[in-house]
Amino acid sequence: MTHHTLNYVEFAAADLAATQTFFESVFGWQFQSYGPEYVAFSESGLEGGFFLSDVAASQAQGAPLLVLYSDDLEQTQQAIEQAGATINKAIFSFPGGRRFHFIEPSGNELAVWSDK
């Protein structure tokens, strides 16, 4: 571990099983259950977990936006949609790349970007 660097992130999740299945199938994250109210993930670039809760993170409400990287933005968007997530901001360009935002099964907003 490196001193003073981001090390772990936690998300609320209303449906731990659906959220775990989504991130496993789309992004290949690995999970470890710690009982009925918490599941940790790894193989994501930044380790973290989901805790059982009825709230969700959204950029509009001031929550931090976690952004994943993709080598193929359109393919990733298609996989996300096929896995049941909702695209809430279509692909748009910005200096240095393109990205889109999505809502995963428990209601948390994340984004995916690419420099391609």
Rank of each mutant, 00 (worst) to 15 (best):
M1P: 14
M1G: 15
M1D: 10
T2H: 14
T2W: 10
H3D: 15
H3L: 15
H4K: 13
T5R: 04
L6W: 12
L6S: 11
N7L: 02
N7Q: 07
Y8A: 11
V9C: 09
A12L: 02
A13N: 01
A13L: 05
A13G: 15
A14M: 10
L16G: 08
A17L: 04
A18S: 13
A18W: 09
A18K: 13
T19G: 04
Q20F: 05
F22H: 01
E24Q: 15
S25E: 15
V26H: 04
F27M: 14
W29Q: 07
W29K: 08
Q30K: 14
F31H: 10
Q32F: 05
Q32C: 10
Q32M: 13
Q32P: 01
S33A: 14
Y34C: 11
G35I: 02
P36M: 09
E37H: 12
Y38V: 03
A40E: 10
F41L: 14
F41E: 12
E43S: 09
E43R: 07
L46M: 10
L46P: 00
E47K: 11
E47C: 07
E47G: 08
G48P: 08
G48M: 09
G49P: 07
G49A: 06
F50D: 11
F50E: 06
F51P: 12
L52D: 14
L52I: 10
D54L: 01
D54R: 04
D54W: 01
V55T: 12
V55H: 03
A57L: 10
S58R: 08
S58F: 00
S58D: 10
S58E: 03
S58C: 01
Q59Y: 12
Q59C: 05
A60G: 05
Q61W: 02
G62Y: 00
A63D: 12
P64K: 05
P64I: 13
P64W: 12
L65W: 03
L65A: 08
Y69E: 13
S70W: 04
D71V: 09
D71Y: 03
E74Q: 14
Q75R: 15
Q77K: 15
A79E: 09
I80W: 03
Q82L: 15
Q82S: 15
A83T: 04
A83F: 01
G84E: 01
G84Y: 01
A85M: 00
A85R: 00
I87T: 09
N88P: 01
A90Q: 06
F92E: 14
S93F: 02
S93K: 13
F94P: 08
F94M: 11
P95M: 10
P95R: 05
G97M: 03
G97Q: 04
R98T: 11
R98E: 07
R98L: 00
R98C: 01
R99A: 12
H101G: 08
F102K: 02
F102M: 08
F102R: 00
I103R: 07
P105R: 00
L110N: 01
A111T: 02
A111Y: 13
W113L: 12
S114G: 02
S114C: 05
D115C: 13
D115M: 09
